[in-house]
Write a protein that binds this DNA or RNA. Structure first.
Lengths: 359, 359
DNA sequence: ATCTGTGCTGGAATCGTTTCCATGATGGAC
DNA sequence: GTCCATCATGGAAACGATTCCAGCACAGAT
């Protein structure tokens, strides 16, 4: 009886051939006479031989594993993205090692180090920190693809040699700009003049552009930088509503911030959309369940993951200078209406009525 | 210059010692004089040496990786569970390989095979299929913990030798029974007599018990088996509402089915809670956002993952005959009210008024 | 009959680590 | 001064695969 798993040596002995022959037959690389092939296959089957990935990995200096880094797996957007990655990886028989960064560059760097140590072959990442954190990955010859966003400091023109390499890392992004332009245009068309924004830097930039494009004055006080951590989002939304009760519409930069905005509005007795209109970036099932139903900018989260995995698995050598950009779409539901009060009359509504703010 | 990563040999050469010494110093196992220790550490730092996990894994016949199998990573319950696992694994420097089974036993078996081949050390699984699928895992000496539920055919008393081993696999479960008893008791207390159920076998069993316990007659037509796949859930909920318009309350067995129930009720113009009361197993953020807010049975999803990871990482040798059961809690919100019509008067409300069902 | 090219085959080297074991050195006790 | 225990040390053997390369058999051409 076998005490443990059969190795290639056991199979070779059982089939009366050399280990090299067994390897050739089973991996299908070299050639073998049909007679020996049969013997080997029979012996392998009889011993229930399963090649050890450990031995192979060492010899080939690769693991056949794909690293995936997302900020927060409980955020539906990222779990959908992960689902896309998993789906593609499964079809290629690759394992996926998942790590969550919590948007913390330090944690991200740790996880990157782990991937390098483990000789992970490929990495798909929603980067949380600086571009330089990724240099070790490139040096280790790991194929890298960014998803959803680019690392900080990667948009400007390249400077050093490593920076150049980083600029060639493929990326799969959503067309934030169009989606945000559509949303702002829609709100402006309804007559909104004091439109707030809650979100990260990238989309904030697009939001400002969209305001200009729609001829709505930008008001820095209405633009709040927030990353969408669950514990700080509500406070960010609530304090914006309280600080500026004259706000007539709000664009939330992701689904966590959108949730916070809806909750904060409800808590402060702001009726949606009568008192304030809300648009959220990213569509989620509950957008149809809450009342009023939420108008959103939908993005193909699962596709982004799938495409990123395709890029990194199918043609890992391909380096692109232009990122793959997937379309977004404004899905109009029930959370927006023309402003009823003060808004649209002048630059600042005079003496905005207190709408029952408690804090 | 180094063309590639420095190996332990390079460090040994640079420090003027043998490889064994380097290994001892760096892994902290054997002893070494402070003089050589210093030399080795200096050389390692200078060469930026990072031990190859590949080599170590082969020698130690382990990967230091944790496999995690869940039905669907986009289901918030499972992504929370995964988050708990990831969190605990990170604190132990273990990598987590995530696979999704889609509740498909065949896919599950494939993924299990992959884990065995890869020499994954430990596995946490929400099992989707038969108990026998896990025998290869045990044979490979992989430490296994079940989470959220047990494999089919594991509740009865053990029969064979392997079955016995399977019965010793630790498990972390939610206290479904109490939660469901509380919910059914609550609904019965409100006066409901025709309470429906939508969900899997395990919780269905608990539901029937709870009905008996509360003195409410069980009605097989009101009990629908559904696993909670996104594409079939809505149809299951809608057809239940249509088939039995006299249903006065519904308990949904998970958050996907709950979502489907709320959506189906809305689509069929059933007002919640006036026409039908709804309770959902598993608390999610949108339960507070939808209107009316949803009464739920909350379960500590993240904790379950964390505890499972603790079990499998900290004392992997511990085998338990009693599963770890974590508490559930009925969170009363706004989706339940006393039945208004027909219900509570007799066994079957006579001639229930059509409430505008469209189908 | 000899030569050559083709196609199988298996021994051995390799990947980078850990760990066993033999060796040499050191230091204290007698 | 001798002896023994203790300790640091490095060579070498695993771990389980892949793959290079040399050897060998055999068929066809000369």
């Amino acid at each position: 009886m076998m005490d443990h798993r059969a190795t290639i040596k056991d199979v070779a002995a059982a089939a009366g051939v050399g280990v090299a022959t067994v390897s050739r037959v089973l991996s299908g690389n070299g050639s073998a006479s049909s007679r020996t092939r049969e013997k080997v296959l029979e012996a392998a089957a009889r011993l229930d031989y399963r090649p050890s990935a450990l031995g192979r990995n060492l010899k080939l200096r690769r693991t056949g594993a794909l690293g995936l880094l997302v900020p927060d797996i409980t955020n539906l957007f990222y779990s959908r993205l992960a689902d896309g990655v998993l789906s593609c990886a499964r079809s290629m028989n690759e394992h996926v090692i998942v790590g969550t960064t919590g948007n913390d560059p330090e944690r991200e760097a740790e996880l990157i180090g782990g991937f390098v140590d483990q000789s992970v072959d490929r990495v798909i990442a929603v980067p949380s920190g600086d571009a330089e954190a990724w240099i070790p990955v490139l040096r280790a010859d790991i194929h890298l693809v960014f998803a959803d966003r680019l690392p900080l400091g990667l948009s400007p023109t390249p400077t050093g040699r490593d920076a150049t390499a980083l600029h060639k890392v493929p990326a799969v992004l959503a067309d934030d700009r169009s989606g945000i332009h559509a949303a702002v245009g829609y709100l402006a068309g309804l007559g909104h003049r004091r439109i707030g924004f809650l979100g990260g830097n990238g989309r904030q930039q697009a939001f400002r552009e969209a305001l200009t494009h729609s001829g709505v004055p930008a008001d820095d006080e209405l633009i709040v930088t927030a990353r969408g951590a669950r514990d700080t989002s509500y406070a960010a939304a609530a304090s914006l509503f309280q600080r500026r009760p004259d706000i007539s519409a709000l664009l939330a930069g992701n689904n966590i911030l959108g949730e916070a905005a809806v909750l904060a509005a409800r808590e402060l007795d702001l009726r949606v959309p009568k008192d304030v209109s809300i648009v959220m970036f990213d569509d989620v099932p509950w957008a149809e369940l809450c009342s009023p139903t939420l108008t959103v900018i939908s993005q193909p989260a699962r596709d982004m993951g799938y495409r990123a995995a395709e890029l990194v698995l199918r043609d890992p050598r391909a380096t692109r200078t232009r990122p793959t950009v997937l379309p977004t779409e404004l899905v109009v539901r029930g959370s927006c209406a023309p402003p009823t009060d003060g808004a649209g009359r002048g630059r600042y509504g005079t003496d905005p009525r207190d709408r029952g703010l408690r804090g």
